[in-house]
Write a protein that binds this DNA or RNA. Structure first.
Length: 649
RNA sequence: GCCGCAAUAGCUCAGCUGGUAGAGCAUCUCAUUCGUAAUGAGAGGGUCGGGAGUUCGAAUCUCUCUUGCGGCACCA
């Protein structure tokens, strides 16, 4: 006999081997009917599993949040059956649950089309309606291999081979169709319901390896209820509404064209935003002891050979050959240039830490498929800096960077940050001893940050070729994660490029270099801000802050006065004197995401007032011109300057 | 780079199985001076992404290149 404890704390004895379904039935038929799975000691399991030892049992209903994973996983099996029924000869591979749904990877030569989706969804509905139970069997390795081999399922055979010998091979059947699967599943296909939808088809490499066959991945999603599915689809539409590529055009910030793949044409408004970010960052860096430099865009191949870029980063570099057959490369990183600045003039240990910053434009030949608006481009501006220091100074400097980064993100409203340590990659330069030291140093910093309560994680093998890094990932308004800032400890490059300083003992010493960026890429950060704010930038960032819109031409003179006064108050303003209705102007400037509309007509002109309308609000506020300008001038002050004015640093 | 899809006016898009292009918005002109998300009328605007082929004839079919989109792989 075993003792089974229920959620209310009560416990009962059952013969060992009693199944969850039997226990549910022993309590009440209605409970058994609505239960789709169980959790044993908190772990989801098939309801048909026998209980072999004492356990805490919970019965999981279809509307239990834990059931969502099962609904999706079951739906993946149904998708696979539907596809194999409709398209015989298609091989199945894997079909996991992912964040917002699930997918299944198939091997088939002909592509799936939108019409196929309709047919597949119909077939899935049929399979679900049949309501066949999911039944589990344990097979031997040979049995499973034979089954899949005779059916030409080469990928499944490979999966069978990859399962450790001490693990059972579990097979789940739904009617006549079966799949190798870890489980668990719900009791039958009917429990899936009809709130599912095929989303898209895309290529994906078998086992994520670009040297292996390309499979067709069908993405789909499923929810417990139609209302939840609808809410999810609505959320997708919301993300599309925020798309920076669309908003960039609507707000007239930038454009791309065919001749410059992955390179941005910044328009006046976009460039204003970009420069606002640079000015802000320049102030923050100056406040933290950085000096700013500018280094060449194009440098001789030999320098890149010395730095190691030529050997490890060549396929990402733009190169050019001049008339005299010299090979140059456009810089993909600023570090070698900053080392040249460091080397110029003898440095003493008293000069350390030396923090050299540059808003450096780097060119990287990114794979064509990676390009994405201004988020992923081939030429971008980094808020880059290199800190030359001693080994002893690493921790303090890394923590200073950390504090600065977090303060900066906070100024933009990003408070949910994850800090990840990336360790040595396979393709790297430098000795293992140097890597040990670098990883140890950053590991200590990570521990310290963890102790301070920050969210941390480790990404093994994801470091840069010259050193490990701490990566700062922020979460935007709709929950997406973006990697922006980075701190990288480098024991290699200063030595490779012959940088040294004179130590306290008069000996030449090689400095350690910390590479760091906070926005990361200004282009990407700009894109993140556009999407985070859905185009509704805070006043200090908005490239056009105020539009003065007239109601009739009789207010033109006054509108000119208002415009001049706004500009004098340091605000970025334009006037719209066109002979158009005020409705038309309101609509147009609202769509262009102008934060403040000052509407002026005869009434305002007579009283030297303005009628205010803020973006996103229908409310109209009448205010004296001076009062309004004072308020907006104050609101438009960047957060760091506001703190300085308030005497807080 | 790989798989799939796409490219028609500044923007969004229509154009069926081949018979040499169309709408709305935007632009320009005229009228209107009208209080918070589209005033009306008229006009101009496209060698249908580039190249090659099939055909009497190609926006439409084929090949190829380029660019973009969705993923994968890569990454700031």
């Amino acid at each position: 006999m075993i003792s089974v404890t229920f959620p209310d704390g009560a416990s009962r004895s059952f013969p060992a081997g009693t199944t969850g379904a039997e226990i549910a039935r022993s309590i009440s038929p209605s409970l058994a009917k609505r239960t789709v799975a169980m959790a044993l000691d908190g772990k989801l399991a098939d309801l048909a599993d026998p209980l072999l030892q004492d356990a805490k049992i919970e019965f999981v209903n279809r509307d239990d949040p834990r059931a969502l994973e099962l609904i999706r996983h079951d739906a993946a099996h149904v998708l696979a059956e539907a596809v194999q029924t409709l398209f015989p000869g298609t091989q199945v591979t894997i079909g996991p649950v992912i964040e917002n749904g699930f997918y299944y990877d198939f091997f088939r030569n002909a592509p799936f089309t939108p019409e196929d989706f309709v047919a597949i969804e119909k077939k899935m509905t049929e399979i679900i309606a049949r309501d066949k139970p999911f039944t589990k069997e344990v097979w031997t390795r040979d049995q499973a291999k034979a089954w899949f081999e005779t059916r030409g399922e080469a990928f499944k055979v490979e999966l069978v081979d990859a399962i450790p010998p001490d693990q059972d091979l579990k097979i789940y059947k739904q009617g006549d169709w079966l799949d190798l699967c870890r489980g668990p599943h719900m009791t039958s296909t009917g429990k899936i319901g009809n709130a599912f939808k095929l989303m898209k088809v895309a290529g994906a490499y078998w086992r994520g390896d670009s040297n292996r066959p390309m499979l067709q991945r069908i993405y789909a999603t499923a929810f417990a209820t139609q209302a939840e599915l609808d809410a999810y689809l609505h959320q997708l539409a919301e993300a599309e509404r925020r798309d920076h590529r669309r908003l960039g055009r609507e707000m007239d910030l930038f454009h791309f064209q065919e001749e410059g793949p992955g390179t941005v044409f910044w328009h006046p408004k976009g460039w204003t935003l970009f420069q606002t970010l640079i000015s802000y960052m320049r102030r923050r860096q100056q406040g933290d002891g950085y000096v700013e430099v500018n280094t060449p865009q194009v440098l001789d191949r030999s320098l890149w050979e010395m730095s190691g870029h030529w050997q490890t980063y060549r396929e990402n570099m733009f190169t050019t050959m001049t008339e005299d057959e010299r090979v140059f490369a456009l810089k993909p990183m600023n570090c070698p240039g900053h080392i040249q600045v460091f080397k110029n003039g003898l440095k003493s240990y008293r000069d350390l830490p030396l923090k050299i910053a540059e808003f450096g434009i780097v060119h990287r030949y990114e794979p064509s498929g990676a390009l994405h608006g201004i988020m992923r481009v081939r030429a971008f501006t980094q808020d880059d800096a290199h800190i030359f220091c001693t080994e002893d100074q690493i921790k303090e400097e890394a923590l200073r960077i950390n504090d600065l980064i977090l303060s900066i993100y906070g100024d933009f409203g990003f408070d949910d940050i994850v800090i990840k340590l990336s360790t040595r990659p396979e393709k790297r330069v430098g000795s293992d001893e140097a890597w040990d030291k670098a990883e140890l140093a950053l590991g200590r910093v990570l521990d310290e940050l963890k102790a301070r309560g920050f969210k941390t994680a480790v990404n093994p093998g994801e470091g840069a070729f010259y050193g490990p890094k701490l990566e700062y990932t922020l979460r935007d308004a709709i929950g997406r994660e973006w990697q922006c800032g980075t701190t990288q400890v480098d024991f290699n490059m200063p030595g490779r490029l012959g940088a040294f300083y004179i130590g306290a003992d008069s000996d030449k010493k090689t400095p350690v270099m910390i590479h760091r960026a906070m926005f990361g890429s200004l282009e990407r950060f700009t894109g993140i801000l556009i999407e985070h704010f859905a185009g509704h930038l805070p006043l200090w960032l908005s490239p056009l802050q105020i539009v003065v819109a007239t109601i009739t031409n009789e207010a033109d003179d006054y509108a000119h006065d208002v415009l001049a006064a706004a500009r004098k108050a340091g605000l970025r303003a334009e006037a719209d004197l066109r002979n158009e209705k005020i409705n038309y102007k309101v609509r147009e400037h609202s769509l262009a995401k102008v934060p403040v509309l000052m509407v002026v007509g005869k009434k305002e002109a007579a009283e030297r007032r303005v009628s205010l309308r803020r973006l996103g609000s229908q409310e109209q506020v009448s205010m004296s011109l001076d009062e309004a300008l004072a308020a907006f001038a104050d609101e438009g002050v960047p957060p760091d300057l506001k703190r300085a004015a308030a005497g807080k640093v």
